[in-house]
Design a protein around this nucleic acid. Structure first.
Lengths: 200, 200
DNA sequence: CCATAACCTTAAACTAGTTTAAGAGCGTTT
DNA sequence: AAACGCTCTTAAACTAGTTTAAGGTTATGG
């Protein structure tokens, strides 16, 4: 764990600037509240049973959040790559043990802020409050769309929508992981992909 | 549209008191920002294409939020009954047209706050900010659980979980509506219910 | 109070998705 | 070079869920 280096800082600050410009004082406050970490491929930033203590900004790399069922099978709930945020909000806000894992799928660099430091930032700088509200709202809207898709469209259509919504991830992730996200078996995804090439 | 009557006020204030006690000043501020409405069965408080301008607290009655697909079929995304909050947050926050309908399934009484009045309330009374954050977080956590279930368990298990999580709704709502929420046909829900009575 | 729309169930034929098994390809470790 | 783990694909047999159609029941609105 280190103080963020210049490059990581820039990625974080750029992401904030998309929503509103920052004063130099706000930049300082923001950076001083975050810590940088490097994570190896297959490293965890959260394990089932632990409390999610950090809100994580991804500088580089890609993570998956997944739950493990009674049969020991993994179910991917979410992917997040550079420029995105990831946390188990259920555990983070309630400060209760998480039911999910968050694991790096590639070597990664991240910036993390602790729960209390985030509240601290809110108090000193009211605009960050709004910023994090927008982050959570965005995630909420994504989830709502996903629920709708899961109850209303076929696996084939869900796969096409995934390709449409996350074109970069589609090339970057193994199909087994995408199948898990879509809620289908890798074999069935393979079947879908086969019919799609013969009928584009 | 009326100022809230005494009974409705009490229901709203009780729901806030579960999270933190209110000063008489805060009570005043809260009540003065809400308007009361009565809604008939099958009445809409939001229609696809309109901007969701209100955050709604349900005093009595029950609502469904649903989307309509290309084939004209309804898909229930959410139910909410007395003591709960409902809004299309995607539209409410972005102030863009909504993709969903919110419709009363029973005659209902509601209290509504407008987007701008909510922000106004936040500014004057910082604690409400936190309160509404908790409401949204709770909804987020529910959605996350729902996504997990949709990708990991069978329709039968989803139905059992629904009965477990919303026992009152199960008696109150038609099975067609529950089937739509679970993402299955009413016929298949009927089949599930049949096997469940023969194998409890 | 009557008409009609909405609801629930059953069943047979169908389609979407799973399971099991096997083999081929590829990159890493020993 | 052999051994290993991981990914992708294929296929056959199976199970979960849909569709279509029909009949009986219950609400509810006029």
């Amino acid at each position: 764990m280190l103080s963020p280096d210049q490059l990581s800082q820039d990625v974080l600050i750029d992401s904030f600037k998309k929503i509103f410009p920052l004063s130099s004082q706000e930049r300082e406050a923001l950076i001083s509240h975050f810590l940088e970490r490097s994570i190896k491929r297959r490293g965890f930033i959260l394990q089932q049973g632990d409390i999610c203590k950090h809100f994580t900004f991804i500088v580089s790399g890609c993570f998956k959040m997944y739950a493990i069922d009674q049969a020991g099978k993994e179910h991917n709930m979410q992917f997040a790559a550079e420029g995105e945020w990831i946390a188990d909000l259920a555990s983070f806000y309630s400060e209760k043990p998480s039911g999910v894992h968050i694991e790096a799928m590639e070597p990664a660099v991240i910036l993390q802020i602790k729960h209390d430091d985030l509240l601290d930032l809110y108090i000193g700088y009211h605009r960050f409050d709004r910023h994090f509200r927008i982050i959570v709202e965005t995630k909420y809207i994504e989830l709502q769309n996903r629920v709708l898709q899961n109850i209303s469209v076929t696996a084939e259509q869900r796969y096409l929508n995934f390709l449409d919504q996350f074109p970069e991830l589609a090339n970057r992730l193994p199909n087994t992981q995408i199948a898990s996200y879509l809620g289908i078996t890798p074999e069935f995804l393979s079947k879908i992909r086969k019919v799609l090439v013969h009928r584009p």
